[in-house]
């Protein structure tokens, strides 16, 4: 009987360790903690070009995360990219004339949206639109332009 009890205790410890490991993976390694305040409000921004932006890419303001990209679609009329941003509800004082630009973290890093606050007294509401946008810097285009201007310069 003593053996049975020891078996049960070690099995209990094993199961606890396994669940603890899962918990660590959820809390420490991944972003489960963010799920709780992901219920925010949504605003829309249109971009000429979004480059490598993806759904779930971060949205930051002054480098602080304030939300995530919720959805990306093509606007059928303007042929622009329509990006839906999910902003945290605690950040509820973003002015309506705020500008959004697509930036790159480091030279080869992933792309994210940076917001720059405007000066209006009114704040963005759910379903609001950000009008001032700046498209992503597409490396091929930049290099293309650079080579083009260089070639033009040599002609003269």
């Amino acid at each position: 009987m003593m053996q049975d009890k020891n078996t049960e205790i070690t099995v209990g410890m094993f199961v606890a360790a396994g669940i603890a490991a899962l918990f660590v993976l959820a809390m420490k390694v991944s972003n489960l903690t963010e799920f709780t305040d992901e219920k925010g409000y949504q605003v829309i921004a249109e971009f000429e070009n979004i480059g490598g932006l993806k759904v779930r890419s971060p949205v930051t303001m002054a480098g602080v995360r304030v939300g995530r990209v919720a959805d990306i679609s093509l606007d059928p009329d303007s042929y622009n990219a329509k990006v839906t941003l999910n902003l945290y509800s605690k950040v509820d004082n973003i002015p309506t004339d705020t500008s959004a630009s697509i930036l790159t973290a480091g030279l080869l890093g992933e792309q994210y949206i940076g917001l720059e606050a405007g000066a209006e007294e009114e704040f963005l509401q759910d379903g609001g639109v950000i009008d001032l946008t700046q498209p992503a810097l597409v490396l091929e285009q930049v290099i293309g332009q650079f080579l083009f201007s260089k070639a033009e310069g040599e002609d003269k």
């Binding site: 094993f14 199961v15 360790a17 396994g18 669940i19 603890a20 490991a21 899962l22 660590v24 993976l25 420490k28 390694v29």
Partner: peptide, 12 residues
């Protein structure tokens, strides 16, 4: 699954 979770956690 428990063993795999332990493996990953210890690996990290």
């Amino acid at each position: 699954p428990l063993l795999a979770a332990i493996f990953s956690a210890v690996g990290v």
